[in-house]
């Protein structure tokens, strides 16, 4: 399995689309690594500076409908090559969510109140989170405070994460 822990990047906006995650002009690249410097280049979010704010971050927490728009798997890849293997949000667009799991990465949905409380308590602070896929738990901490949040993954999603993606799974089964 991939690494599912690290410092948290809070993106306080709904409907972040995959054009914002990685602009189409970089879709001419045929290597994932080439996407690395361009993650969130066109993100419309006040005060956000990708060069500074992405530094050392390995988990993204955002609001509703993360990853809407284009089907480009370049979006999860651009996250992956920046060591971000986990996105936690209130909800996801279908294709982005599936792409993430197909790559053996996590797209974890939490209830509105939980996301709201995470933003209230931790955003703007140095926050660390660790996801335990087996237990279905996220441990999150910052300064003196910490907590453990439960989440649920479907059987298929879990299998994809454990198998490291969909190609191997499908090839052995169909």
């Amino acid at each position: 399995m991939k690494r599912f822990e690290g410092k948290v990047l809070f993106l306080d906006r709904s409907d972040i689309n995959t054009d914002e995650v990685i602009p189409a002009k970089y879709l001419t690249e045929v290597s994932k690594e080439a996407l690395k410097p361009h993650l969130f280049e066109d993100l419309k979010l006040k005060g956000f500076d990708p060069r500074e704010d992405l530094m050392d971050k390995e988990i993204v927490i955002s609001r509703k409908n993360f990853g809407c728009g284009s089907s480009r798997e370049h979006a999860p890849w651009a996250l992956e090559v920046n060591n971000i293997n986990v996105v936690i949000a209130e909800s996801f667009a279908r294709i982005f969510r599936q792409n993430n799991f197909n790559c053996g990465m996590l797209a974890i949905e939490l209830p509105t109140e939980t996301i709201e409380s995470l933003f209230k308590k931790y955003s703007g602070m140095d926050t660390y989170a660790k996801v335990d896929v087996k237990k279905g738990e996220i441990s999150i901490s910052s300064g003196g405070i910490s907590e453990v949040i439960q989440f649920r993954l479907g059987g298929f999603d879990k299998a994809l994460v454990e198998a490291g993606g969909w190609v191997g799974f499908a090839n052995s089964k169909y």
Binding site: N99, V167, A170, N171
Partner: peptide
């Protein structure tokens, strides 16, 4: 619409 991994499969 699907991503590249789904396309590959």
């Amino acid at each position: 619409g699907i991503g590249t991994t789904d396309l590959e499969v």
